[in-house]
Amino acid sequence: MPKSRIRKKKSDSYAPPERQATKIDMRAGRRWVAPLMLAMFVIGLAWIVVFYVTQGDLPVEALGNWNIVVGFGFIAVGFVVSTQWK
């Protein structure tokens, strides 16, 4: 049976390059996200509640049942804005 090759050991002087830690500043930027997100949720919910309480007369009578879609639209915008929150 043939003899297997002998592996050469790497020298012990090798050291991996040092990495510098990057600091992420979580306080800066995007302070507008949480208030805007909550505002969209509240506006959408209020729109739907006002529509039901006034039996379709408010907020916009001409839209009819589409007022529900508008309310859910505000809520959907709130969810889209929430993806920007860090």
Results as ranks from 00 to 15, higher is better:
38 L>N: 12
48 I>Q: 11
31 R>Q: 09
74 F>G: 05
17 P>I: 00
24 I>E: 06
40 M>G: 09
74 F>T: 05
82 S>K: 15
47 W>I: 04
83 T>A: 09
46 A>E: 01
9 K>N: 11
40 M>V: 06
31 R>L: 07
70 V>Y: 01
61 E>Q: 14
82 S>A: 15
48 I>G: 00
71 G>Q: 10
15 A>M: 03
13 S>Y: 13
55 Q>N: 15
68 I>P: 02
71 G>E: 09
65 N>D: 13
36 L>A: 15
58 L>W: 13
43 I>W: 07
33 V>E: 07
80 V>M: 11
61 E>A: 15
35 P>R: 08
65 N>V: 10
55 Q>Y: 12
26 M>G: 04
53 V>F: 10
27 R>N: 12
37 M>T: 13
28 A>V: 07
63 L>V: 06
39 A>P: 03
40 M>P: 04
21 A>R: 01
25 D>K: 00
68 I>V: 15
41 F>S: 06
77 V>Q: 02
72 F>V: 15
77 V>S: 10
15 A>G: 05
38 L>V: 09
27 R>C: 04
11 S>A: 12
64 G>L: 02
82 S>C: 02
74 F>I: 04
61 E>V: 11
79 F>C: 11
37 M>W: 02
28 A>K: 12
56 G>M: 06
14 Y>N: 09
50 V>F: 00
49 V>S: 12
72 F>I: 15
73 G>Y: 07
72 F>W: 15
56 G>H: 01
20 Q>R: 07
80 V>P: 00
54 T>N: 09
